[in-house]
Amino acid sequence: MEVALTLPLVPDVELIAARAVQVMGRSLGMTDGELESVTVATVEACLNAMEHGGQTCFFVRVNTHREDGGPSLEVEIEDHGVGFDPQAPPRTSPSRILGCVAKRGWGLTLIRELMDEVDVRSRPGKTVVRMVKHVGGA
């Protein structure tokens, strides 16, 4: 089962992707906690695509899987912007909050923490963030 969305760059459009993953995740029997994790990760990936995508739209694909290992939800966010270095070190904590708030750049860190599998492929013209959440998984 797949949902494929082409989303324009308008405010709050990430909530359409969030709703899609919630509906699909619920169909797999995800817990509220799992749904919230996938939702926040999806929102962050959409924000990255909207910020760095540079085009008029970006793409979201949501797939359900029911392999022997258990059901899982796969979300792909694709944009055709300038790309970025996915190997850039994540920020794990702000060393000094006072006077030095790390305002942006948390998206991939949150995604990696909240999802079970994350694969980021980026080059100029095409970035795909693929992430998977296993139902009832670690």
Binding site: T39, I97, W106
Partner: peptide, 21 residues
């Protein structure tokens, strides 16, 4: 509140920063 994003949390961090100061 069920959905929050990193931009929103960053603003909360800024509020916290000012409050602590």
């Amino acid at each position: 509140t069920r959905i929050i994003n990193s931009i929103g949390i960053s603003i909360l961090l800024e509020i916290l920063d000012r409050l602590m100061e």
